[in-house]
Design a protein around this nucleic acid. Structure first.
Length: 331
DNA sequence: AAGATTGTTGCTTA
DNA sequence: TTAAGCAACAATCT
């Protein structure tokens, strides 16, 4: 069965796995993608690039190709939800450059060994989805309707070809080549990040005195705290017993402390479980992103609160986003 | 069938 | 000057 020999690594969330929820890559998902890709693409020569949707590349196609082709990636880093590929140039005196990839809401990066598979994108139908889960993923692992950029990679010593596909159903994601100065500028716009050195109690605490908006908006703001999205913000606030409508400057010291520690813990745990929305088809065990099972409020609207077992989880639009909470245990 | 959904940007308002 | 609020972006589902 192909599932055992499959070398196709699918790095992203899948809309069809959790069809009723629209789960988007946040910090833990992007981090999982980064780790998986780093192992596989670093060091491989970029042989060819096919640009099917030029608008997704924020440079000229010519510059994009010229910068990447015949070179390779030295490393993959991440800030917030943004992936940063550092480019290793064949010629040593070239100015350092970086490839930024943002997946936004529906972007995917799919890695595939060409010798085993041609890679795919979103499943295009329920039928495709069904076949996929029946293990017949050769039907699915091919260039899909939503594949917009294709990198052909070449392993230096073995000469094997592999493919990296950028798929994006809604085409909100982007790819961009930047130099060191531009990268620094972009990085400077990100706030403190769970798991990074700057995520200290002192830094975190300070934020709350400077802001007037509600806590939901604050936690979603990438300039203040980077990496959180709609799912984890709801989970963090539930864990902290704080209502998402609360104003940042109305929170007590102990409430801020709770938010601080649950942010750290939830993000750490979500990375450990390889994300909520992440799905990985590479190994014979078919491991998936498992955090979905750990969600306490997100997507549970109308269901009984697992903590107080009395109230129902509510869903309201707060800070322009669908927000899930228990009004009994979140004050 | 209109409205909701998602992350981010950029515009408007306060 | 700065922050808050909100439309816009694409495509799909309810």
């Amino acid at each position: 069965m192909l599932i055992n020999s499959c070398q196709c690594l699918k790095l992203n969330y899948n809309k069809f796995i959790i069809r009723s929820h629209k789960l988007m890559p946040e910090l833990p998902e992007v981090e999982t993608i980064r780790r998986g890709l780093k192992r596989r693409v670093v060091g491989k020569r970029i042989k060819k690039i096919i640009i099917k949707k030029p608008k997704l590349i924020k440079n000229s196609g010519q510059l994009f190709k010229k910068t990447l082709i015949d070179n390779s990636f030295a490393d993959i880093q991440r800030i917030g939800k943004l992936l940063i590929f550092s480019i290793k140039f064949k010629s040593k005196k070239a100015e350092p450059k970086f490839l930024l990839i943002h997946l936004k809401m529906t972007g995917q990066l799919v890695y595939c060994d060409k010798n085993n598979f041609v890679a795919g994108g979103h499943a295009n139908s329920r039928e495709e989805e069904r076949r996929f889960f029946d293990g017949q993923q050769e039907d699915f692992c091919r260039e899909g309707e939503h594949t917009h950029i294709i990198f052909e990679l070449n392993s230096q010593h073995r000469g094997k070809t592999s493919m990296l596909f950028f798929n994006d159903l809604r085409q909100f994601g982007y790819l961009k080549i930047v130099n060191e100065k531009e990268l620094k500028e972009i990085k400077s716009k990100f706030g403190v990040e769970p798991g990074q050195r700057n995520f200290t109690w002192q830094n975190f605490r300070k934020i709350f005195f400077e802001r007037r908006g509600n806590i939901k908006a604050l936690l979603l703001n990438q300039k203040i705290i980077s990496g959180l999205g709609n799912i984890y913000v709801d989970e963090i606030l539930f864990a902290s017993r704080v209502k998402p409508t609360r104003l940042a400057n109305s929170l007590s010291e102990s409430e801020i402390k709770k938010i601080f520690s649950s942010t750290k813990n939830i993000i750490k745990r979500a990375i450990k479980f390889r994300g909520t929305t992440f799905s990985d088809f590479v190994d014979s065990r078919g491991r998936k992103g498992n955090f979905k099972q750990k969600l306490k409020v997100y997507g549970r609207q109308g269901k009984k609160c697992q903590r107080c077992k009395k109230s129902k989880i509510e869903k309201k639009k707060i800070a322009g986003r669908g927000t899930h909470f228990c009004s009994k245990c979140q004050k």
